[in-house]
Structure formats: structure tokens, C-alpha cells
Design a protein around this nucleic acid. Structure first.
Lengths: 237, 237
DNA sequence: TCCAACCATATAACGACGATATACGCCGAG
DNA sequence: CTCGGCGTATATCGTCGTTATATGGTTGGA
């Protein structure tokens, strides 16, 4: 059985890492918990870094497999949203892995992290092909990724901080809104009629010299007020 | 001279940290470079963590002093922008410090980092007092901060990546646009009158059942068309 | 003036860490 | 049966952060 002890070491390390910090887990701890001795571990992983990378790669592979499982959906924007959420959830589920991979300055060296970036890039290319991207995919990738990593690190550091409620959603919507063109379908545009009327009302009142007669302006204001007070139909969602 | 050796140790450590990684700098290295022995260092800083925190605090104090130097400007939004830029620049100038403070999960424990968050919170309170904040300051603080930290970490990891050009500005504008209301001055709002009228025209035509009589709708459309065709005065900037 | 208390620093060492040179046993191929 | 290679164990290295103990230099009071 070739891969038996190796997998056993990986599992034990993952268990230890789940309950402790990264630098608190020593080679000796892993060896004692796995029932082996140091040279065995070094024979399989060569290095402590190699062991941790193998553990992180296994966890990240599960995360990527989950991402690939449901495959690309109909709307690449939805893929972007669920991809962001999955990234954050992975960080919160495996805090030690996550800080190990993205905390330092070596995240771009991780093959698994690069794979994640490639998936993100693919989504953005699909979005660009539909003409819904405000920048190039190459520019959008680090924009989204760096914000997502920063948010996840903040959440991992203090998951239960009251100010962190909905933090991921807020940063996600902010960054995505700046990167992808938000086109609203026709029915939503219908619901937006009162808002648009209100906007014109405000603009009109601020305008010092509109090209209208006093009667025309008064009439327009009345009509706009009627539209602005229209109750929005079917406020679903 | 009480603080002489202490300051000397701080300077030497900062020098070593400028050219090497954090975990590559050992207590023994610092002691040899400073011409002292271990107990002296431990007498002054108690701990390796204490030494690194003292060094980071000193660097961050300089950064905060620089921030306080020019003081709050007229527009708190400008303070937000320059504060973001200064944060990123500090990270790029002192990469080892920055990763030490914000890389792991212990950044919120750093007194200096908390001071920075307090400054950010103050700016947002000023902005909220002017009614220009779309959320509460307490929600906006982690939103801005986590995105800024993520961006800075990405830039520190790979400062010269071509895709990272203007990365900080892009994320900054995206997050700030989602948090603070962008109110355009009166003259711009005047120029925006035709555009707003055009928007309402489009919304009106897409609406299948506006609460208007046919005559009212026709009249409104005529007035809006007049406004929409108004030439924008003084297209400066 | 002398002494005692105190503070800063040095000597030497401890325990734990990551890592390794060497040796032992097992097991399939000849 | 033997023999080479692979996996594992023994024992150990050098370095790390840290500290118990001791020493010198300064200072305030008797």
C-alpha cells in the first residue's frame, strides 16, 4: 500500500490544523498523532512546507471540485457571485488552510490558487463576450480577487464581529457593480418609473433656468408628482 | 541614557526587516547586529512578538503622523481617498511590516492598526454627518478596510505584475462608490437635465401601463422631448 | 563616605523545533 | 536464496526562542 501512510499523515495534519494555528502545529505533533516518526514524514513530503502545501492543496482541490461540480450556469454573473461566496465560505470553513495560502505573500505561488484565478478569469471572459464587462478580464481578475481575499481574511480574523455581518455581500456587490454592467430587465425598468420621475423632479427643481414656461413647468411638476407617487407593483424578492 | 539601546535595537531590527523576510530574522541576528545579547533584548521587549510589534508600531506611527500632519481636509471624501492611497503606499514601502501586521489573523490586536481604524471611522462619521454616506459608519469601516488590506497584500505580493497596474485605484473607486453617495454639484446637475429627461422618456415608453390618461402621456412626452433636446450649456471639463 | 537597592547587561543553558545521516527490516525479481 | 530498493526507525545536529543566574554601573540615603 503505497499511498496509505501518506494519506493518513495528510488526514491527521488536517485534523490538527482544524483545531490549532498553523505555527502551533509541529512536525513532532503530526508524527505523534499519526503514529510515525520524523523521517517517514520527510520521506513523503520532503519539507514542512511541502506537507502544509499538500494539505492545503487537498482542501483546495475539494473546493475547486465543488466549484466544478455544478459547472457554469446560464448567467456568468451568477457564477461570479456564487464563486465569491464559495471562496469566502471555504476560508471560514478552513481558516488555517486559508491563512496559510492567502495570508502571506506567497499565494500566487500556490498551484491551487492559480487554478482558482484561472476559473475566475474564465467567468470574466464569458462575461466580456456578452459585452457586459466594463474593463478587460485581465484587469478585473485582481480587482475581484484582492477584494475577496481581503474580505475573507477579515472574516476569518473576527467571524463574529457585529460590524462584519453581511460584510462579504457588501464588498462583493460593490466590486462587482464596478466591474460588470448591470442591465436591468424590462419589468424591473417598469418598476423603476417612480424613481426616475423623482430623479427628474429633483433635477428640475435644482435647475435655475429650464427651457419651459411657468405654466409648462407647473404642469410637468404635477405629472411627475403623480408618477413619483405611483406605488411600485409587485415588490417581489 | 535610558531609551538609547532600545531605540538602537529598534533601528537595527527595522534595517534587518527591510532586507529580509520576517521569519528569517532571528533574535540572535538582531542581537549580533545590534552588538547586544539576548537578555538585553528581552529586558526591553519581553518577547519576539513584542519586539516586532514595537518595530511595526514605530513604522505605523510614522504613517499615522503623516496622516495627521496635513490634518482633515475640507472634504472628508478626499480624506478617504488619500487615506486609502497612504495605506497602500505604506504597505508597499514597508512590506515586511505590513505583512506582519495585516497578513495573519491578528491584525485587529495591533494597537496601531486599531488607531488606523479609528481614524477611518472618524472620516466616515464626518461624511455621515453631511448625509453623504449610504450606510452606517460602523458598516462602512470593515467594508473599506478589508478591501484596502486585500488590495495592498496583493500589491505587496506582486508589485510589478502588469495586471496590478492601477489595481488600488480601481478597487478604491469601486468600494467608495458603493459606500458614499456621489453628489454632483449644482451646475453638473443642470447639465444632467436632458439626460434625466431622456431616461424618463425611455422608462415611460417601456412602461406598459402608466397611470396617465392618453392626453397626459402625450403632453408629458412632448415636454420631456423639449427638455431632452436642450443643448447642454457650458460642457466644461 | 559607604552601603544597599536598582537597573541594564552578560554568561550559560534549557527545551523544542525543523531537518538529516545512518541503519534496519520487508518484499518482489532474479 | 539473495539482493537491491523502498519505507521506516534510531539517534543526532544546529538553530530557534526563551530564561535562570550572575555581574557591573549608577543612585539615593544614612
Amino acid at each position: 500500500m503505497v499511498g496509505s501512510t501518506r494519506q493518513h499523515i495528510l488526514d491527521v495534519t488536517a485534523d490538527l490544523l482544524r483545531s490549532t494555528d498553523v505555527e502551533s502545529v509541529s512536525i513532532r505533533d503530526v508524527c505523534q498523532a499519526a503514529g510515525i516518526t520524523a523521517p517517514t514524514l520527510y520521506h513523503h513530503f520532503g519539507d514542512k512546507r511541502g506537507l502544509l502545501e499538500a494539505v492545503a492543496a487537498e482542501g483546495f482541490a475539494r473546493y475547486l471540485a465543488e466549484k466544478h461540480a455544478d459547472g457554469p450556469s446560464e448567467d456568468p454573473f451568477d457564477d461570479l457571485v456564487t464563486g465569491w461566496d464559495r471562496h469566502v465560505r471555504f476560508g471560514l470553513t478552513h481558516p488555517a488552510f486559508y491563512v496559510l495560502m492567502y495570508g502571506g505573500t506567497r499565494s500566487h505561488e500556490h498551484p491551487s490558487a492559480q487554478e482558482g484565478l484561472r476559473v475566475l478569469h474564465g467567468m470574466l471572459v464569458r462575461l466580456a463576450e456578452q459585452g457586459r464587462l466594463l474593463t478587460t478580464p485581465e484587469e478585473a481578475v485582481p480587482t475581484i480577487h484582492s477584494a475577496c481575499v481581503g474580505t475573507t481574511l477579515a472574516l476569518v480574523a473576527a467571524p463574529d464581529a457585529p460590524a462584519h455581518a453581511d460584510l462579504s455581500r457588501r464588498v462583493r456587490d460593490a466590486v462587482l457593480a464596478a466591474v460588470v454592467k448591470q442591465e436591468q430587465p424590462a419589468e424591473q425598468r417598469t418598476e423603476a418609473l417612480p424613481g426616475t420621475a423623482r430623479a427628474l423632479l429633483a433635477t428640475l427643481s435644482a435647475h435655475q433656468d429650464p427651457p419651459l414656461s411657468p405654466g409648462e413647468k407647473l404642469l410637468l411638476t404635477e405629472l411627475l408628482s403623480r408618477l413619483a407617487s405611483t406605488p411600485a407593483p409587485g415588490q417581489a424578492s
